[in-house]
Design a protein around this nucleic acid. Structure first.
Length: 596
RNA sequence: GACCUCGUAGCUCAGUUGGAUAGAGCAACAGCCUUCUAAGCUGUGGGUCGAAGGUUCGAAUCCUUCCGGGGUCACCA
């Protein structure tokens, strides 16, 4: 993925190779990269492949190609060869002109795609925790990245609102709830329902332990033998039969949970264009199974269950329909995927789901492949690692789950403390202060979760909590606030307009150049983040950018600069940096306040 | 058992898809506020990239084997 100027150098290299040595090298094989900091230069052309191909001495080859490039690329100033690397320096005018010519504009993608991103997908029997936050932030920011590229994105949420887990909360509430409601208890609905889910597990465990002792059987087997599980299954059957009382309770409890989720989503700053409910979709997919059977893609066992043979793809046989004719997870996912591609004519379907389901999505794609769907390979699983504690996985029953609401509140308190320490926000109104503290807390959480590559597990240490210094969200906010502080102090009319000549001839100092070069990469980074479905690329970039700015800020004064050309140029540089930081942080869901 | 995935500084993580002497942040240490916001800047120390082989001009990155962590392989979702 090359920037505009890198592309120009690559094309010039191609034609130089053709003219000089009569060889044709595909652009993709020409390696251009940023020059390492220890060396002089802006971009580096890697010569090794040509050295090998042409069996020429590196010195001679580098010299010949370098000279040709200077003739072909007007922005080029000089070159130096080090071993097999040709380090190219561009004219300062190139950078200066770039800065003044719509630097923030990005080329929209040629093909505007319709993409659905499914994320969050909560169970409606307990509140959201830190792992869900990671999911939400990934889904949200990937959606924003694709939108920024110019795609048409639908953010979807599939609520797992039925099944045995919901029945557990319902059963416990009926038995021990005494009619408790969010209003009567003052509890957030999702937490209230979650409490009954936990209560069910606790009570069931007591019963289970007795059975385990008496009958000397395993845990899961004993679970299934408890009266409570039997009652629970009976409840689920009633639900499926449409029993009015059960349905009514189910609707009531779910509405509490949704109200609670809604609040948490708002605090997190994520939202959805479309909600799907499993209670509506759980019967989907049976037509697909039937179709596959008729066409011989699937097969039926004697007991009536339907399977697909994926051994030719290196996988196993996978069940698609139970022997009693009811759906499994895969059945509904086949159904909903088909429905979505039909309804929206999607170019891409992205599922943001934890890596424990890697196998599931591999199978999902392959089943569609076998069915001959042309779009089977347009299904993407944005797989992400778990958020773990230093002691291991978060476990509900051990009380080691980091609750989403609690974490946000805790971070807000910390942010308020930090802010009070500096004394810079004393003149804010209470309302402004609360908003600021919320923005800072969220920035810390979001950046913490988004700076890691999605594939990797994240270790969260509650004792250390989340940092506000260094490679963090608040650092971005702080950098931005300093810029804004400068910009607030200068009137629009004060800024002199530089002539084309003054711009072209501006003599940058090293900090200014580093900052421009960081800014220069923004579009390339956006494309990398989109291609890899990885907001982490963007997080890392924004940190680098903010760091370049901080160095610049430290070395180069803006307002106190007496040379008016320098002053104007630096104001331009700072304001572009502010806008870029602001816009791209927004993509990550991070707000940058005016001051902090 | 089979398959997937990860293993990089004391800790938390990057590493542009095979390029130059492996980078950040935190923690430690040393400097820098009368100067645009010190939630900051500058510097120092810290590494057998899990181990061993292999591929080639060149490997943290690709291949093989082994060691270690996690995950999946349910007529659960």
């Amino acid at each position: 993925m090359l920037t505009h100027i890198e592309q120009s150098i690559a094309v010039a290299t191609q034609s130089a190779l053709k003219d000089l040595y009569q060889i044709v090298v595909p652009i993709a094989d020409i390696q251009i990269q940023e020059t390492n900091e220890e060396y002089l230069g802006d971009f580096t052309l890697v010569l090794f492949p040509f050295i090998k191909l042409l069996r020429k001495a590196p010195a001679l080859l580098g010299d010949e190609i370098g000279k040709s490039l200077i003739a072909l690329v007007p922005q080029m100033q000089s070159f130096v060869r080090v071993q097999g690397f040709l380090n190219i320096t561009l004219k300062p005018a190139y950078w200066n002109n770039w800065l003044y010519k719509n630097p923030l504009q990005i080329r929209l993608v040629n093909e505007r795609q319709k993409v659905m991103v499914e994320y969050s997908s909560p169970n409606t029997n307990k509140p959201l925790h830190l792992g869900h936050i990671r999911n939400n932030l990934l889904g949200y920011s990937v959606s924003q990245i694709l939108k920024k590229q110019g795609h048409d994105v639908i953010m979807a949420n599939l609520c797992n609102d039925r099944g045995i887990h919901i029945s557990k909360s319902m059963l416990a509430w009926s038995r021990w709830g005494n009619g408790a409601t969010p209003e009567s208890t003052g509890k957030k609905g999702d937490h209230l329902v979650g409490d009954y889910y936990v209560m069910f597990q606790t009570e069931m465990k007591k019963e289970r332990n007795i059975i385990m002792q008496n009958e000397n059987i395993e845990e899961t087997a004993a679970d299934n033998k408890t009266q409570m599980m039997k009652d629970c299954r009976a409840l689920l059957l009633k639900w499926e039969a449409g029993d009015e009382a059960v349905r009514s309770l189910w609707e009531t409890m779910n509405s509490w949970v949704y109200a609670g989720f809604d609040e948490t989503y708002k605090r997190l700053g994520v939202h959805f264009d479309k909600f799907y409910y499993e209670s509506n979709t759980y019967l989907y997919g049976k037509e697909i199974i039937q179709d596959g059977l008729e066409r011989g893609v699937f097969y039926k066992k004697d007991d009536g269950s339907v399977w697909v043979d994926l051994t030719d793809e290196g996988l196993d046989h996978k069940i698609l329909l139970r022997s009693d004719g009811t759906s499994v997870y895969m059945t509904q996912d086949l159904g909903t995927a088909q429905q979505r591609f039909d309804e929206y004519n999607l170019d891409k379907m992205i599922y943001v789901v934890g890596n424990e389901q890697d196998y599931h999505f591999k199978v999902l794609k392959l089943v569609f492949k076998k069915l001959g769907r042309t779009w089977w390979n347009n299904i993407f699983h944005l797989s992400y690692g778990m958020v773990e504690l230093p002691t291991g996985k978060m476990k509900t029953r051990e009380g080691t789950v980091i609750d989403a609401d609690d974490l946000i509140t805790e971070m807000e308190v910390t942010a308020a403390d930090e802010s009070n320490k500096t004394g810079k926000t004393e003149d804010l109104t209470a309302e402004e202060f609360i908003k600021l503290v919320h923005q800072i807390a969220l920035a810390a959480i979001k950046f913490f979760l988004l700076k890691a590559g999605p594939a990797n597990a994240i270790i969260f240490n509650p004792a250390k909590s989340i940092e506000f210094q260094g490679f963090t969200g608040p650092y971005l906010q702080y950098s931005h606030a300093r810029i804004k502080s400068i910009l607030r102090k200068v009137e629009e009319v004060e800024i002199i307009k530089l002539s084309a000549e003054e711009i072209e001839n501006y003599d940058m100092v090293i900090e200014e150049k580093n900052l421009i070069q960081q800014l220069h990469k923004h579009e390339q980074i956006l494309n990398i983040a989109a291609d890899n479905l990885s907001p982490a690329s963007l997080s890392n970039y924004l940190f680098e950018l903010a760091k370049s700015f901080s160095s610049f800020y430290d070395k180069c004064s803006v307002l106190r600069e007496e040379n008016l050309i320098k002053r104007a140029y630096r104001l331009k540089l700072t304001s572009i940096t502010a806008t870029l930081l602001f816009d791209y942080s927004k993509i990550l869901g991070i707000d940058l306040p005016e001051r902090m």
